[in-house]
């Protein structure tokens, strides 16, 4: 009788099957590949963004074009005059903004222009750019700003 009740040694294999491991890793890989945006522009102006409370997220990054306004970065951490940069290049004449934006708008009708303006800038340049945007017809804008961490109240 005792033979029947003798506990059998567990001989089930304890190894975790690793055959699907590459698939899992590939899945993660593809996720990160899709979400990655490689930084394609070098910002030539300083943009310390202001803080705000009533902010919203821009969900569709594909619609966004950035306009950088701020003091030009010089050597030795110094900054020069206020300049405007769109994509990779500085824009010398404010009126050129109109053409650039108009061309972008024909490619992407739902364009959002994100204004990344340095907090020390003066309104004059911003207003000039806004007038050009109105001329070009790109009316959806976004004043890029960071979330206020401490809270104003």
């Amino acid at each position: 009788m005792s033979v029947h009740f003798k506990k059998k040694a567990a001989n089930a294999q304890t190894a975790i099957p690793t055959a699907s491991l590459p698939d899992i890793i590939f899945m993660l890989l593809i996720f990160f590949m899709v979400t990655t945006v490689l930084r394609e522009t070098t910002v030539q102006v300083r943009t310390i963004l202001p803080q705000a409370e009533a902010i919203e997220k821009i969900e569709q990054k594909r619609l966004v074009t950035y306009v950088y306004i701020g003091p030009k970065k010089l050597q030795n951490n110094q900054v020069g005059e206020t300049a405007i940069q769109i994509d990779d290049a500085l824009v010398d004449e404010v009126t050129n903004v109109r053409t650039i934006m108009y061309n972008k708008l024909t490619e992407q009708p739902r364009l959002i222009v994100s204004l990344r303006v340095d907090e020390s800038s003066e309104m004059g340049k911003v207003i000039d750019v806004q007038q050009e945007l109105r001329e070009a017809g790109t009316l959806r804008i976004n004043y890029s700003s960071k979330r206020d961490i401490e809270g104003t109240l």
Binding site: L29, K57, Q130, L139, N142, Y143
Partner: peptide
């Protein structure tokens, strides 16, 4: 490859105050 993309990814979302300019 995974580690490469992990390192280069930035998931910070763009935030800002949205406005619509008046048409010309």
């Amino acid at each position: 490859l995974l580690i490469f993309f992990l390192v280069t990814t930035t998931i910070d979302v763009d935030t800002g105050i949205g406005m619509t300019l008046p048409p010309k």
